[in-house]
Simulated assay, not measured.
Amino acid sequence: MFHSPVIECQGVCKAFADGDSVIKAIDQVDLEVFGGDFICLYGASGSGKTTLLNLIGGLDRPSSGEVFLDKHPLSHYSDDELTDLRLHKIGFIFQSYNLVPVFSALENVAFILQMQGFSNRDALAKSEYILQQVGLSKLMHRHPAELSGGQQQRVAIARAIVAQPKIVLADEPTANLDSKNSEQLLQLMKQLNQELGTTFIISSHDPQVIQAAERKIELADGKIIHDSLA
């Protein structure tokens, strides 16, 4: 682990209106994430794990407080600038996959690289390699509707890591995988973490993921109640 925080949350709150009441999905969270961290956010459903990931990745903006990426406050970025930031620095693995239905698995993964300016040939070659790494070499020309939930999840994972982003945010990445594929995914993420220094923040209920994490952060009612680094 390195010493300078790549992500900082300072007094971050996210509130939602629910009828006449206000629900604090995230409540006064202070957090430092360091380059090379391998973190698991865990806690009961509704504890705020997904909301915190979305705030860190700039997909959502806090009601109060500030999120910093490399010392730069995300509130100073326009929506277009945040999109560009996510394209080049942050890989996302969503619970809902977010795959493009008219693209094959290979095209879904290559699309990120093409948007970054890679040639079509290089984008496809890199994407083929990463799909082999997640065990989908024989299925890369199938469309999402022709793949199982677990296979779609592995395409989403390949897409998130193909460009070797500085940070990967993963929301329940093993939720639709069997234990063998979960273990394979964890090994791949660990390899990226150790060899490239990729920072991982993973939300999960999976004991396998929680155990594999070097740093474990427990949330309850939108607050951090335990941080193994503290």
Rank of each mutant, 00 (worst) to 15 (best):
Gln132Arg: 15
Lys190Trp: 12
Pro144Ile: 00
Gly135Thr: 02
His72Cys: 11
Phe111Glu: 13
Val67Ser: 13
Phe103Glu: 00
Ser64Thr: 04
Val162Gly: 02
His88Ile: 01
Leu106Phe: 02
Pro144Glu: 02
Phe118Cys: 13
Asp60Met: 09
Phe103Ser: 00
Leu113Gln: 07
Arg121Lys: 14
Val162Glu: 03
Met140Leu: 15
Leu113Ala: 11
Glu183Ser: 09
His143Phe: 14
Ser64Met: 04
Val67Tyr: 10
Gln151Arg: 05
Gln187Phe: 07
Val100Phe: 07
His76Cys: 11
Ser179His: 07
Gln194Cys: 12
Leu136Phe: 01
Lys166Cys: 13
Ser78Trp: 08
Leu185Phe: 01
Leu82Asp: 03
Ser179Gly: 07
Ser127Leu: 02
Leu147Asp: 00
Pro173Val: 03
Lys126Phe: 12
Gly91Asp: 04
Leu106Met: 04
Leu131Ala: 05
Ser179Cys: 03
Leu188Val: 00
Lys190Val: 02
Val102Ala: 10
Phe94Ser: 03
Phe111Ser: 14
Ile130Thr: 12
Pro165Cys: 07
Ser104His: 02
Gln153Tyr: 00
Phe92Trp: 03
Gly91His: 01
Gln95Lys: 09
Ser119Thr: 11
Asp171Cys: 02
Ser148Gln: 03
Tyr129Thr: 15
Ile161His: 10
Ala125Gly: 05
Gln184Phe: 11
Asp171Lys: 02
Gln151Lys: 03
Leu106Ser: 01
Phe103Arg: 02
Gln191Ala: 13
Met140Val: 06
Asn120Tyr: 15
Gln187Arg: 11
Phe94Ala: 02
Phe92Ala: 04
Ile167Met: 10
Gln95Ala: 05
Tyr129Asn: 15
Val168Thr: 05
Val134Gln: 00
Gln132Asp: 10
Arg142Leu: 15
Ser148Met: 07
Gln132Thr: 11
Lys180Cys: 11
Leu82Ser: 08
Pro73Ile: 06
Met140Gln: 13
Ala145Trp: 09
Asn108Pro: 02
Asp171His: 03
Ser119Leu: 02
Leu139Gln: 15
Tyr129Glu: 12
Val168Ser: 01
Lys89Tyr: 08
Ser182Ala: 08
Phe68Pro: 06
His72Pro: 09
Ser119Phe: 01
Asn108Ile: 01
Pro165Phe: 14
Ile161Leu: 05
Asn176Thr: 12
Gln114Arg: 09
Ala123Met: 03
His72Gln: 14
Glu107Lys: 15
Lys180Trp: 03
Phe111Thr: 12
Arg159Thr: 06
Gln164Arg: 12
Pro101Met: 06
Gln191Asn: 14
Ile112Asn: 05
Leu188Asn: 00
Leu69Cys: 07
Met115Thr: 10
Met189Ile: 08
Pro173Trp: 01
Val102His: 09
Gln133His: 06
Val102Asn: 14
Gly91Lys: 01
Ser64Tyr: 02
Phe94Leu: 05
Lys180Asp: 13
Val102Ile: 10
Ala105Leu: 07
Tyr77Ala: 08
Leu124Thr: 15
Asp171Gly: 04
Asp60Ile: 08
Lys166Glu: 11
Lys166Met: 13
Leu99Trp: 04
Gly65Ser: 05
Gln153Leu: 04
Ile161Gln: 09
Lys126Val: 14
Ser75Asp: 15
Glu107Arg: 14
Leu124Arg: 15
Asn181Asp: 08
Lys166Ile: 12
Lys138Asp: 09
Ser182His: 06
Ile90Lys: 05
Thr83Trp: 08
